[in-house]
């Protein structure tokens, strides 16, 4: 079997002859953190995204499954009002701006920039949460009237849970960037948090389509 090849990430680690035959590898010269898929956080975050993405996908599948059970969809109620959900789409899309700014600032170690952008994200998150309350009030159904209501509330509820957790994450991170203590891997946290925010954003688009537009499909496409 051939000897292993070492291709260290940033700088070459130094091979040093080892007292007992082999060659030692000095890793002290390596960086003490890394961005993107080099970091463990990135893998952890993607793991969570895989799990939660599966939950969303299965909930949407359940939605269509239940829709296929009858002839009417929504079963007995008008579709949700478009205004608040659509507004939320716009705010979500707008949130990509500070989000990307936070990610970029973190990757340049720009503390002031990361602080500003993260707090900006948290502020927009707050707006999203407030709009969410109105969304719930304009779904035009209750969770306990029929299966349509149950699945719509569940879908919106699951997404809100993500919105809320990531908002909390972002807010805590924002405060931490203001108060310290700061070390290099905080910047990795900011960058990974931004990635997760993109997931919350991206998952909203199909969920929005399902909740608001599937009930409005023309009759030829009804179940």
């Amino acid at each position: 079997m051939s000897d292993p090849k070492f291709e260290p990430g940033a700088e070459p680690a130094l091979p040093i002859p080892d007292g007992d035959g082999g060659t030692d590898l000095d890793v002290a010269v390596l960086p003490s953190f890394g961005f993107g898929h080099r970091s463990l956080m990135w893998w952890g975050t993607w793991g969570m995204i895989a799990i939660e993405g599966t939950v969303f996908a299965l909930t949407i599948a359940t939605y269509f499954y239940l829709r296929g059970q009858g002839t009417q969809w929504p079963i007995a109620e008008p579709p949700p009002d478009l205004l608040w959900g659509t507004l939320n789409v716009l705010v979500f899309l707008a949130s990509a701006v500070p989000n990307q700014a936070a990610k970029r600032a973190a990757e340049r170690y720009d503390l002031a920039g990361a602080r500003r952008a993260t707090l900006g994200c948290a502020a927009l998150g707050m707006v999203l949460l407030i709009l969410r309350v109105f969304e719930f009030r304009h779904l035009n159904c209750r969770w306990d009237t029929d299966a349509y209501g149950s699945v719509v509330w569940t879908l919106l509820g699951f997404h809100t849970a993500h919105l809320l957790t990531d908002w909390l994450d972002t807010a805590v991170l924002g405060v931490m960037l203001c108060t310290g203590p700061i070390e290099g891997k905080r910047y990795v946290d900011v960058s990974e948090n931004a990635m997760y925010w993109y997931f919350v954003l991206a998952s909203w688009l199909p969920i929005y389509g399902v909740i608001y537009w599937v009930p409005r499909l023309p009759p030829v496409l009804s179940p």
């Binding site: 292993p4 090849k5 070492f6 291709e7 260290p8 990430g9 940033a10 680690a13 040093i16 030692d24 590898l25 000095d26 890793v27 002290a28 010269v29 390596l30 960086p31 003490s32 953190f33 890394g34 898929h37 080099r38 970091s39 463990l40």
Partner: peptide, 23 residues
């Protein structure tokens, strides 16, 4: 060599080749 003894320091390696990447 070069990992701290007084901290819980570990070596992260790359996914496919397990080449040293960062501490």
């Amino acid at each position: 060599r070069g990992l701290a003894d007084t901290q819980r320091e570990v070596l992260a390696t790359t996914v496919l080749d397990a080449a040293p990447d960062h501490r």
